[in-house]
Design a protein around this nucleic acid. Structure first.
Lengths: 336, 336
DNA sequence: AAACCAATTGAAATCGATTTCTACAGATTT
DNA sequence: AAATCTGTAGAAATCGATTTCAATTGGTTT
């Protein structure tokens, strides 16, 4: 079918080894020889076979991306950042979607062999320490985005600070009864960011001299509907109803907004709502939220992995990106 | 490192050919021999090397997914459907994001060699006929989702009917000045769905005995902001302002809604807006829209490709899924 | 001019499977 | 009992690169 390295060698009147050396510019090849080889390559329209290269070099030139892609829109935004970097590199991107704990284990299991990828990026989920050691043995670098497993190189945002910022914003406006809508008790798949955000929420309240009221703290499944249900539960009560709600995702916030709408509670005057992530929808809904550098986190993680694949080794490290409060129309001072 | 086929052969006291035959159960192997090989495999914890298998068999066990992933949320929903099928198969999914015409050509160029994938799924974009012939020569099946290139196997929705449904809904409510916000004149990357929706829009008007007013038909870039600008242009004029707007995506619709909001035009009473896609955001915004079977389209396309990779050949074909009108809060009869 | 060294480069081994080709056993036919 | 099949299975070629090893070349050193 298409030309092989042997054809090129014959054409240029050299050995296959020399052609390979020209391709990878490993050791020295005389300029004139190199030119002859390059000419032959051009004439034959030769493209080296990735597959063969893989087998002999032991590299797959693939990067595996492990993530629960479809639980939240934010994962996609991170993916975008990753793709923008990997797409420009010599590597290709293979995606592994995980939807459950079992799926995650199976996924890592399948990746140990270095057969599917040279390195891994994970989003929100991560290997156990034992699993990570196996990757380390196989010399496969792993970068985790949005997570905080201490034995991994990881990119995260300062979620504690994010929770603090969100809550303090509401406190400054004068709110004292502030609800918290989250997926807290889930903590599944190794993602601690919700717990950190909750920590920030607590800190803010404590610093303001307020007590944490467990009745205002809810946790549920993922998704808009869960947000709606939690919002409804918080807002249905007439006495002691919160005047503001911190949501750990914009998706939840949209659910809360709907609950408020159905209960005929005016946002922002009767209820302030703040989200987290700053996804596209947040702009459309004019939602005050905490912007996460999602795209940037992908870029950072991907570049980091490429550096490691290029041989650069660094100390185990956590690289932290900052969140930013984005003021829009769903928060204001409470009517008193 | 890990055991190879030779180790297994030695252990079982057979030749490598026999082991391979057991692995792929090609030709007959005596039951007792087979058992010995299977035992050896288990004892050595042997897993065949994908990479080596690729080289000798010429199959990559990869499916390439070519799409403009980040232009619209709907692509991600389709991806979800695809992943749900491919994830269960023996194939892995490699994604190729394309952001421009050039990028698309380069991408196909890189895929001809069968080095990166055994088959291709494309979303919204597709190869030219010449490009497709090269894939055909390489015996690589291609399935296009959301497009209508006649030389391809393709999954699409009946966009003409969709445009018709949307427009007729507004006509039935009593609207006569109906705007159309789209990316019409772009038609780039081989995607004809917008043109079809426009066709439906025209048909609906014509059947109702109305003239098509070019002043009400706008086209622009992708994205919310473009929708905002087009909405603004349509709504800014006081005389002859449309009482309803058909948008070719929900994303546009959100932009139009914002324009209406800023111009203090009440939706739905002063302006009806209908979107297209039924993305998550549409529910949050209570947007009337045309639901597309996005997830299902991915499932259908992926299964189809797997069938073809398994050797099944069918006539060149277009498989059409139906759209569905979803009534929500942004359309009502005009105030007259 | 002999000896030596460095830069090049070809030949061959290797990666780990699949697949073809051939050989051998035992069963069946004549 | 000789001849012919058929079912099994081993040996070796193959896929298309990389990489090691050894050989050659030419230039330098003494």
């Amino acid at each position: 079918m298409s030309a092989t390295i042997r054809d090129v060698a014959k054409r240029a009147g050299v050995g296959v080894g020399t052609v390979s050396r020209v391709l990878n510019d490993h050791s020295a090849v005389r300029a004139s020889t190199r030119q002859r080889v390059l000419d032959a390559i051009k004439e034959l329209n030769y493209v080296p076979s990735q597959t063969a290269r893989r087998l002999s070099s032991g590299k797959t030139m693939m990067i595996g991306l492990v993530a629960p892609f479809f639980t939240t829109p934010s994962v996609v935004e991170r993916l975008r950042g990753i793709e923008s970097v990997i797409g420009e590199s010599d590597y290709d991107l293979t995606i592994f979607n995980v939807e459950s704990e079992d799926g995650l284990r199976d996924c890592f299991q399948a990746l140990y062999g270095r057969e599917k990828a040279d390195g891994l990026i994970t989003i929100s989920v991560g290997p156990t320490e034992a699993e990570y050691l196996r990757f380390q043995n196989a010399n496969m670098p792993v970068i985790m985005i949005d997570g905080d497993l201490p034995y991994l190189n990881r990119v995260s945002v300062d979620d504690t600070f994010g929770g603090l910022q969100a809550t303090q914003h509401l406190l400054k406006l004068g709110h004292t009864r502030i609800g918290f809508v989250s997926d807290l008790d889930k903590e599944r798949l190794g993602n601690h960011s919700t717990a950190d955000r909750f920590l920030g929420y607590q800190q803010a309240l404590t610093r303001a001299g307020l007590e944490v009221d467990n009745g205002l703290i809810l946790a549920g499944e993922h998704g808009r509907h869960a947000g709606y249900e939690m919002g409804f539960r918080l807002l249905f009560q007439v006495e002691g109803r919160p005047t503001a709600i911190v949501c750990t995702s914009d998706t939840y916030a949209t659910g809360v907004l709907q609950a408020a709408y159905e209960l005929d509670i005016d946002v922002p005057y009767e209820l302030s709502v703040i989200g987290y992530d700053d996804i596209e929808m947040a702009k459309a809904l004019n939602l005050t939220t905490l912007h996460q550098p999602l795209f940037e986190s992908g870029v950072l993680g991907a570049n980091w992995l490429l550096d490691q694949l290029a041989g650069e080794t660094t100390e185990m490290e956590k690289r932290v990106l900052a969140t930013k409060l984005v003021l829009r129309g769903t928060t204001t001072r409470p009517v008193s």
